[in-house]
Amino acid sequence: MIKQYFLNTWSGIWTVLVGMKITFKHLFTPSVTIQYPDVKVELPERSRNRLYVNMDDCIGCDQCARACPVSCIEIETVKSVPGDEVGKTSNGKKKALWVTKFNIDFAKCCCCQLCVFPCPTECIKMTSIYEFSEFERDNLLYNFATLTPAEVDEKKDSYAKLEAEKAAQKAAAAAEPKPVAAPAPEKPKEESSNN
């Protein structure tokens, strides 16, 4: 009983000293802190962060938007009219669509990378940027389309005109089926060259 009492006292003091020795050792071990904004850890090779779209290569095929599980990519395209030079992708294919709208809402994006795989031209990809917080949620809506609103209107107009002409042509063709293609091909050519 008495012996146990003194043993308790001794073990109490001893264990405290052992603990103090350990903490004292840690006082001099180099710290593991990484001074984050000054020092950054290198990200793993396949880390998924913010997306980037290289619009020079984008053919506006909408595959990425369809793959996205949270529907945060919004794409609108306008067909180019004959004579328009939309440009070429980096592997030399001709593009056929004006991408008039390419918005990615990073407030919704879950960084799943599912949009990256279907892209035929590999133009949508993950970057290593992860510091893009904003005070306004709207600021997270990134617009990748390169066309200005005026240009977008112009492309839309020209396509609408083309459509209208085609429709008119069809209507004309339907109205008088006998004189088949004699006068028709001339008209659109004039119109499109005006554009």
């Binding site: 903490t23 840690h26 006082l27 001099f28 071990t29 180099p30 710290s31 593991v32 802190t33 001074q35």
Partner: peptide, 13 residues
């Protein structure tokens, strides 16, 4: 600082 270094941290920097 003491608490930080005892836990292998740096404390206010």
């Amino acid at each position: 600082k003491v608490s930080a270094h005892m836990q292998d941290r740096l404390g206010p920097m």
